[in-house]
Write a protein that binds this DNA or RNA. Structure first.
Lengths: 331, 331
DNA sequence: CGCATAATGCTCGCAGTGAGCATTACAGAT
DNA sequence: ATCTGTAATGCTCACTGCGAGCATTATGCG
């Protein structure tokens, strides 16, 4: 309402018009694995729910995203967070002079039945190397290592980059770094043009770099995770990294759990996201002392083993401690 | 080169065309204070360097950003990182059906002479309450508290939100939360429409919420920081929060320091960003044992006090430790 | 009733961290 | 030559948090 100061003349020179797409990474946990909601469009690779921004309809990007999710998947999501904006030339591939910018969002939901024409896929089917839990997909790791060492050869820079991203020590957060390395190395197939050399930027999602140019998507070993449409797998990698980071300082896990849960459920959920296994007793100690949860009086029954107490999230923890979250050790 | 899969037909339906702007938050430290590069456009409020995306010219958003910075400020920045994408309806105020989307980037540079028609301003002039160092701007804090308590009244929700954002304990990271609370409370003046009630979203930058509607920008106390054009102060707040967070797990401080420096310089820089003071001996211990730096043999001379050894950043720390950064205690 | 499966309790040992005390080394003023 | 102010450095001590295990308890089932 207030009369705006000089509006819309800040360099209103040309300013190419661009197409804005919203992409949704919707994550849930089921059967101890993180899942991602994808849609299949006539014979194409699985894609994230996405659509154009309707500027007239929605006052904010977040509202537009919620509506998009509702429309395409039937889901009413609670937690939503902006992830990243992707705008490289090689991604949209619409026309020459128009750019396809995508703003990706992350949404967390409780397990639900597959909605509309969407379906859940295992996040670690896309990024198998991210699951370091024994017996979960860690098996082909050796194979991956070989391919990576092959790629690096004696190149000091490559070896350093390899060491930084794939450890040791393993840093669960660096999902995107690892994906981009693999992409640049031509080890993951994607519906995008061949990676080419680029003046290396810095942190954050960006185009592939550091490649000898001989890599082709065809060379990618299908064992290294399933491809998605466009750069959606990159977006998924960004999302997983973000979740893992946020886990440790914000109570986001509870968005994925039912109202009440056993501490073991909480642990399994964290493990699924972090991709590592945790020491049970220490995890309990940590969680119980953190004030993140409070016991309901109830106990489970019918399951194997000694009955467990049911807990619930305790929101007021946010008033007591800065950055309340479940600590995931990096090492 | 590889034949593209089905390109550009993903929902190419309508998809409003939107104007894409790039905004740059360029930060440096000088005289123990974080500074921000702004440009003054004919009698308007100070603004971030910004401009339209030239889709034809630049292959990636990051490259476009670098060029924009070069053009507008003459600076060649090193570290650049995408910050957030702002797209609320009330921000651009260009026309009714076209949306002005802004992708904001954060850049870190070493202290430089003011370039072209840009100038440095003190970040804590924009966000005075963020500087908790004694004798740095913390003085008017009492006044702010009063205004905030006034705003909250007996409203439990408001009191909770106040407690969560302004502590105790103080969480340096929550810069944006605090700004948004103040904005919603009508305590900071801005070149934007009056805050109105909105269905509350969740985390992350978004439109103001939680207001009784009686707030007007006019009510804002000019003592609570200087305004900027459009939503640029919000963007600056986002940037400060991001820097503070990243500080603790990535070696970003060194982007702001000269090649060699005393440990005290490092400490002052961290303190300037974190807005708090640190225990000197413990800080040294922490930094020296972290492997983040290595001593050059040289020592300072000419300054007051005992000569200090000069240190330099040690990049290989990234090969040894996950998330290398300077730990800033929250409390 | 014995076994398998979990939930819970508890203990050690060590590595970080918060707070200080004490000492050393220069530049400048007296 | 001394004294004073300002920093750089060394070192201690108490405490807390966390990694790893050992031990015990409580149910469902065959």
């Amino acid at each position: 309402m207030g009369p705006m100061g000089t509006s819309g003349e800040q360099d209103s020179g040309h300013g190419d018009l661009v197409a804005m797409t919203l992409d949704a990474v919707i994550v849930a946990i089921s059967a101890g694995r993180p899942r991602l909601l994808v849609v299949d469009r006539q014979g194409q690779r699985p894609a994230l729910p996405s659509g154009p921004l309707d500027a007239e309809q929605d006052a904010t990007l977040e509202l537009a995203m919620r509506r998009l999710i509702r429309t395409q998947t039937g889901l009413e999501v609670g937690y939503v967070e902006q992830l990243y904006t992707f705008g490289d030339r090689d991604r949209g591939a619409t026309s020459r002079r128009r750019r396809d910018i995508s703003v990706a969002y992350l949404a967390l939901v409780r397990e639900t039945e597959p909605a509309l024409d969407a379906r859940w896929i295992d996040v670690y089917e896309l990024l198998p190397w991210e699951d370091r839990r024994v017996g979960h997909g860690f098996e082909q790791d050796a194979q991956l290592r070989v391919s990576l060492e092959n790629w690096a050869g004696r190149d000091a820079q490559r070896l350093d980059r390899l060491a930084m991203t794939f450890g040791p020590p393993w840093d669960g957060i660096r999902v995107l770094d690892r994906y981009e390395l693999l992409y640049g190395a031509g080890l993951v197939a994607e519906g995008l043009p061949t990676p080419t050399d680029e003046p290396d930027g810095s942190d954050g999602p960006r185009g592939p770099a550091d490649t000898d140019g001989s890599a082709t998507p065809e060379r990618a070993d299908p064992g290294f995770g399933g491809p998605m449409a466009l750069d959606h797998r990159r977006i998924a990698a960004t999302a997983l990294g973000r979740i893992r980071g946020k886990l440790t300082y914000r109570p986001v896990v509870f968005e994925l759990l039912p109202e009440t849960f056993r501490l073991l459920d909480l642990q399994r959920t964290v493990e699924a996201l972090a991709g590592i296994e945790l020491h049970k007793q220490n995890f309990r100690r940590l969680v119980e002392r953190s004030g993140l949860v409070e016991g309901t009086g109830e106990r489970t029954t019918g399951t194997a083993g000694r009955p467990a107490e049911l807990f619930r999230y305790r929101p007021s923890v946010q008033l007591e401690r800065p950055r309340p979250g479940v600590g995931v050790p990096y090492r």
